[in-house]
Amino acid sequence: MADAPLNGIRIVELAGIGPGPFAGMMLADHGAEVIRIDRPGRGGITIDAKDPLLRSRRSVALDLKKPEAIAAVRRIVGQADGLIEGFRPGVTERLGLGPDVLLADNPRLVYGRMTGWGQTGPMAHEPGHDINYLAISGALHAFGRAGEKPTPPINMVADFGGGGMMLAFGMLAALLHVQRTGEGQVVDAAMTDGSALLMSMIWGFRGMGRWSDRRGENLLDTGAHFYDTFECRDGKWISLGAIEPQFYAEFRAVMGLDAPEWDRQMDPRSWGPLKAELERRFREKTRDEWVAAFAGHEVCFAPVLGFDDALADPHNRARGTFVEAGGVTQPAPAPRYSASATVAPTMAGERDDAGVLRDLGFAPQEIAALGH
C-alpha cells in the first residue's frame, strides 16, 4: 500500500472537546501530522489517554495566557497547512491567534473553526450542546416515535456528523483550493448548518409532498411497518428495512404474510395495524432464530447488536471494523482506500513537550523559556 493520502500535511489543533478532536482524529487517521496544543497541567499526561478522539497525534502543553506561548503557537502554525480551533467566536482573536494574524503569518493556512451556532448570527455567542443545535436546525423534531417527545440520537448528528466530519471535509476542500491558488482561508463549520445539511434528503421528501411534519408517521422515522425495530422473544431486537418491492416481497415470503392487507405496503393507513401484527409475530422467536430464518434472503434485515456483539460479529471481524490500541477497543479508521493506507491508531500517552518543540525547530533555550 502507498502512503496514507494526507501524508505530508501538518495540522495544528488547539485542544477542545468533541467535534474538534474528531476532525483532528479523522485527519490523523488518513495520514496528516496533527499536533495538539494542550492546556498545561496533569503532570505530562496527555488529556484522556484512553480517548480514541485523541489518537495518532503528538501534543505539547502551552499556557495560552502567556505571550511567549502565543508567540510559540504562531511560529508552529506558520509551518502548518491547517489549524483547528473550537472556541466561541472571538476567543482566538482576543488571544492574538485570530485568522487575520495567522493568515498574515502564513497566507496558505486553512483556518478551521468549529462551533455550534457558527461565527455569525444572533446566537453565535450563546452556549449550547448537540441537542440545542439539532433543535434549531429542524433535525431534532424529526427524531422520535409518533406521539412521543423528540429524542436526540445521542450526539452523533450535530457534534460528529454535522460538526467534526463537516469540518474535516471543509478543511480538505480548502487545502485543495490552496494547492490550486496558494490562497488560504477560514472554514466556518457550524453544527447547526451541518445537522441541517444531513437532513437534505428529508427536505427533498418534504418538497415532494412525501414527508409529514408529524414525527414518527413517515417512511423512515418508524412510521412504516416495514422500517422499524422489533423486540424478539428473548428481549433482544432486530431491524427491518424492507422498502423496495422486491425486498418487501421476500420479507413477506419468509414471514408467511399472504393475506391481502399486506399488499398495501405504501398506504400509511395500513401501517399501524400491520406493525402491531409484526410486533406479535417477532416475539414468537428469539433474535438468533430470526437471524437464521432470514439468512440467505434479500430482505434488508439485521440484528440490533450491542457493543460486545458488534465486536464479535463475523462481518465486522472480516472487515476489521474495530481495532485495539493501547488497551482500548475502538472503531478503525474509515473509509478504506484501494491504493493508500490509513494510519494504525496509537493512543495518546506521556507527552514529550520538549521533543515536539525540538522537532519543530525550537532551540533548547527557547524550550526552557516555555517551561519545558
Rank of each mutant, 00 (worst) to 15 (best):
R214Q: 05
L172Q: 13
E148W: 10
Y248R: 01
G8L: 04
A368F: 06
S195Y: 00
E250I: 05
A189W: 14
D81Q: 13
L370C: 10
R113Y: 04
L240A: 14
T115C: 11
F226V: 13
T46V: 14
G86M: 14
W203Q: 03
A32W: 09
D258R: 08
E93K: 05
A318E: 15
G138N: 11
L83I: 15
D353F: 07
T222R: 07
A292T: 09
A196W: 11
P333C: 05
A15D: 09
S56I: 00
P52G: 04
L311G: 07
L102I: 08
K236P: 06
D213K: 03
G118K: 02
S270R: 04
E284S: 13
D63S: 09
G20C: 09
I84R: 11
D309G: 10
P273Y: 11
M208Y: 08
N7I: 04
I9R: 05
R55S: 09
L257D: 09
V34C: 04
R287W: 02
L83T: 15
E244V: 15
G162Q: 09
G82N: 15
S59M: 03
T151R: 08
N106W: 07
F87C: 13
F205P: 05
V186Y: 07
D288I: 06
E366A: 06
E231W: 12
Q365G: 00
D267T: 12
A369V: 03
K285S: 02
G207Y: 09
